[in-house]
């Protein structure tokens, strides 16, 4: 079955991101297809490369990145929600003349159309909200 996942909670502020990560791992284990994971609202903080949790805690942004690389997942961050909250890729940092950028690869910034398209092509959309 084709799934898409929406995450609207920031890591460490709420349990949403961690729950979503575990759910996605189960989906993959059970051989379902993940069409896209979409990060919206405060969920954009899941993509920050600058998160430095203590070593005995899960590094949620890097867990997402590893999972995405391992399974070739499309992990998309809402661009409008992200730039507002200071999550920028190199391109946006250049556009807004910022001295640095912090989007973890392979996260990509894109528009809300990616959420809607995910809803159209997926059998299930599951939201993990804060």
């Amino acid at each position: 079955m084709i799934f898409s996942i929406v995450v609207t909670g920031a890591p460490y502020s709420s349990q949403a991101a961690d729950s979503a990560l575990r759910y996605c791992k189960s989906l993959l284990k059970l051989e379902h297809q993940i069409h896209r994971i979409f990060f919206y609202a405060d969920g954009v903080h899941n993509a920050s490369e600058l998160a430095v949790p203590p070593q005995d805690e899960t590094n949620i942004p890097s867990e997402w990145a590893q999972l995405a690389e391992q399974h070739k997942l499309d992990i998309v961050v809402c661009i409008a929600a992200a730039v507002r909250r200071g999550v920028l890729d190199e391109n946006e940092a250049g556009r807004y003349e910022k001295s640095s950028h912090n989007l973890t690869l392979p996260f990509v910034l894109s528009g809300l159309g990616q959420l809607v398209e995910a809803g159209i092509v997926s059998d299930r959309v599951v939201t993990f909200g804060a």
């Binding site: 919206y40 609202a41 809300l112 159309g113 959420l115 809607v116 809803g119 159209i120």
Partner: peptide
């Protein structure tokens, strides 16, 4: 956030 999603769904 909901309003922005609604407008995008209407574009599609």
């Amino acid at each position: 956030d909901a309003l922005d999603v609604a407008l995008t769904i209407s574009v599609f």
